[in-house]
Every structure is written in C-alpha cells, then in structure tokens.
C-alpha cells in the first residue's frame, strides 16, 4: 500500500509563526514499487519532506500515512519505522561500531530480533549492497573506502528489511566510479521490488533511475509527474533555476535545427537510439 501526504504543512519549531514554513500544503502519493526522484534547490524542503515518511518529523497540519497507518499515532509509528528505511545524507558519518558486522546489526538488534536471526540478516544485507560478510564483516568500517562505507551504512538500513528505501543525496561526494556503482545498486534494489525515494541534485541520476519526479520549490510542490513529462518542461525548470538532463537539452537543440527525434530521450543511450533511427530512416527514404 502506498505512501500518502495529505495537505502536509510543516514549520520547524524555531521558525514557527515567523518565517515561511519548510513544507507548504504538500499532496503526494507514492505507489508500491515506484522509484520517485525528488529534486529542488537547497532549502526547497527535500530533506524535511523525506523525514516525514518515517515519522521523524510530524506534520504541523495535514496527514502522512504509510500503508494506511497514520504516522501521528505513536505506537503505529514504530511499525512504520520498520517498513521505511531512511538513509541520511553522508550516512557513513554515522558509522560507529568496531566492526562492519556490528554496525549493520545495530538496527535489527534495536528492534529486538532474536540473536540467531541477526547474523543471517547482516549477511544478506551486506550481500545486497555488494559486500562479502566474510571479507569485510570483521573489519573496522573506518578502514574502508568512502564508497564502501556508504554501502555499509545502506546495509545497516536494509538489515531490518524495509519495503521502502528513502535516500537523501546518495551520490554526494562520491567519485565517478563510486557514483556509477551506487546507480547500479539502487537500480538493482528497485528491481528486487523495493519502493525507492531518492533526493538528488543530479538530473542525470534522476533521469537514469526514476519513474516519477517530484519538484519542490519553497516547500511547495512545483511539479510532479512521470520523469519524461517533468523533464519535457525545459523552460519552466530553467525559470526556477533547475536543469534538465543533457540528453534532453541536446535533443531540443537538434529539433531547433530541424532534426526532430521520435522520442523524448533523457539518457545518452536513448538519445543515441533516437538519433541513429533518425539517420537510418532518412537513408532509407533518400
């Protein structure tokens, strides 16, 4: 069952009554198995929004439900926290245990799961992020590379077997190799059936991964729709200072010169397919 935001407004206690709320009348539904990208400028409310999904923040007005459970209900909230895994920005900064295995076991242990089950959960979670329990389980997380540390942190969230994974800027600070691997990991987790909600400022990452995109502006929903629909509004996005995927811009430049593609490519691969077919069909005609 889905995640629903129903007219959610949120003002941080420090600013209540004063400045503009961090979220303003947000309506949103995320279906099971969907991959939602969340974009918007720094300060547009992305981090505030995702902290509502597992009840870390509660709406000032409005309602958030997960699988029909209202997060305002304190006891129900604990159940939701198990179903929704939240990966903060730079999650590796929160690693603390002496060994990787201990760190990943923290979540399941906090839920009070039997010790016998925990090891298997840890093994599986590490496997899902592409790390081998025997190889890294006994090592200190601080001996690993930055990209590996981030994977350990994600494994720690996956260990409690959530159905939804929410990530705040998972690619931030990674080098190109780390970024490519993280894309691959998120794509795999999504294909395994997880609902994924990803905050990102990289339009290429969003275009490559997301089914739908939510655009926030000053805490309000500026646009929400399929990835290709949202990214077809070049002018509107540019007006609020956001970019569109480079493949879409390039296709627009070609169209302006009379080479109209029979698709709206968002990735380099889709762009090349569309151009190749434009060139071939021309050759067949000519």
């Amino acid at each position: 069952m889905p995640i629903r935001f129903d007219h959610v407004t949120y003002a941080y206690p420090a600013t209540r009554g004063g400045a503009q709320p961090a979220l303003v009348d947000v309506d949103l539904t995320v279906a099971d198995g969907e991959f939602l990208g969340v974009i918007g400028h720094t300060g547009s409310g992305k981090s505030t929004l995702i902290q509502h999904i597992n009840g870390l923040l509660l709406p000032t007005t409005g309602r958030v439900t997960v699988d029909g459970i209202d997060l305002a209900d304190r006891t129900a909230r604990r159940e939701v926290r198990r179903r929704v895994g939240l990966v903060f920005q730079y999650p590796e900064h929160q690693l603390f245990a002496d060994t990787v295995a201990e760190d990943v076991a923290f979540g399941p242990r906090a839920l009070g799961l039997p010790a016998g089950e925990i090891e298997q959960l840890v093994i599986t979670a590490l496997e899902r992020v592409g790390l081998d329990f025997c190889e890294v389980g006994h090592r200190s997380p601080f001996e690993l590379s930055g990209g590996q540390m981030r994977r350990v942190a994600i494994a720690g969230v996956l260990a409690t077997r959530p159905g939804t994974l929410v990530l705040d800027e998972p690619m931030a600070g990674l080098d190109p190799v780390g970024r490519g691997a993280m894309r691959e990991l998120l794509r795999t987790l999504h294909h395994q059936g997880l609902t994924v909600i990803m905050v990102s400022h990289d339009m290429e990452d969003v275009a490559a991964l997301a089914d739908r995109v939510l655009v926030l502006r000053n805490g309000a929903v500026f646009a929400c729709g399929t990835t290709s629909d949202v990214f077809s509004h070049h002018a509107e996005l540019r007006e609020i200072g956001l970019g569109v995927p480079r493949a879409a811009l390039f296709a627009a430049r070609l169209a302006a010169r009379g080479v109209v593609l029979h698709a709206h490519p968002l990735t380099v691969e889709a762009l090349a397919d569309a151009i190749a077919s434009a060139c071939t069909s021309h050759r067949e005609v000519g």
């Binding site: 390039f250 430049r253 070609l254 010169r257 009379g258 080479v259 090349a272 397919d273 151009i275 190749a276 434009a278 060139c279 021309h282 000519g286």
Partner: peptide
C-alpha cells in the same frame, strides 16, 4: 550504432555532424 560522427568535446561540432547525416 553506425552513425559516423567525430569523437569530439565540441558539442556544436557534434550537432553539425548529426544534422549532416540526418539530412544529406
């Protein structure tokens, strides 16, 4: 994909080459 364009960093040059092969 069999489209003959130069390996270039110059987006304008690439655009030019594509327009040529799509419209000759």
């Amino acid at each position: 994909r069999g489209v003959d364009v130069p390996l270039t960093l110059d987006e304008a040059m690439l655009e030019e080459a594509i327009c040529r092969s799509a419209s000759t």
